Simulated scan of single mutants.
Amino acid sequence: MAEDSSIEPVEGEAPVATPAKRKITRKTAILAAVGGVVLLGGGGGAYMMLAGGAPAETEAAAEGHGGGGGEAHAKGGGEEGGEGGAHEPFDVPPIMVNLRSADGAPHFLKVHVMLLPGPKATEESLKAKLPLVLDAYQPFLRELRPEDLAGSAAVFRIKEELLLRTREAVGEGEVAGVLIQDLIQQ
């Protein structure tokens, strides 16, 4: 009888109730692990969002407002390093194309992009190769269907495809990225 009950009699004292032990089931362990991952991921994401770029920006601002040497370093740093971020984005004129549709109804797409110059690029070289870039974009954009533009992943896929076509047209090292300014479907 003592094995079935959670009350254990002790000699000379009144019976004391002991709580029954809870078993940790597989479901409970999985939920605890998922909760821990979510908390760690959320904390890490919040840290990266709030503290990600602030130290580098404040160091650059401190160097720029410092003595005479800091100003010379700030002006010459982008040209000597040849980094893609030091150049201004290159504006590509908006492109308007008709989309391929199964129902035969007219669908149009207007795309306005900017190119982030790479380490080998100059504004003149990008301007000279702009017709090649536009020519590379046209067939891809015309083959898109309205369904291809649905969802948030569509913009990412289009950016990647435009970047690949840009690099094929102008060469490696000329373009570091493609920024989509407008993507309007009508």
Rank of each mutant, 00 (worst) to 15 (best):
I95F: 02
A61Y: 02
K110R: 15
K110C: 04
A54C: 02
L50D: 07
E143I: 03
P93C: 03
P139C: 03
G53C: 00
D4K: 11
T58M: 07
G177N: 14
G104H: 04
P94V: 03
E88V: 13
G85S: 15
T25Q: 04
A54E: 11
A128C: 01
V16T: 12
K159D: 09
A29K: 06
A86H: 04
A72Q: 11
E63D: 09
M1K: 07
A153L: 08
G81V: 13
G81I: 12
E123T: 12
F108K: 12
I184P: 01
L179D: 06
R167T: 15
I158W: 00
G67R: 05
V175P: 00
G45E: 05
G173I: 07
V92E: 01
G70P: 01
R165I: 02
L132H: 05
H65S: 14
E147A: 14
Q185W: 06
G151A: 02
K21C: 06
P9C: 06
M1L: 10
Q185E: 11
L109G: 01
G82Y: 05
D182H: 09
Y137T: 03
E168T: 13
K21L: 12
M49Q: 14
N98S: 14
L126W: 00
P106E: 12
R100G: 05
E79D: 15
E13C: 05
Q138T: 15
E83Q: 10
D4W: 07
V178L: 02
S6M: 09
A56K: 12
G173D: 05
I24W: 10
E8G: 08
Y137F: 15
L40A: 15
L132E: 15
R145F: 06
R22K: 13
I30V: 15
G66A: 15
E63M: 13
L99K: 01
M96D: 11
A128F: 09
A20Q: 11
P9Y: 08
E11P: 08
P55N: 04
S101N: 07
T18S: 09
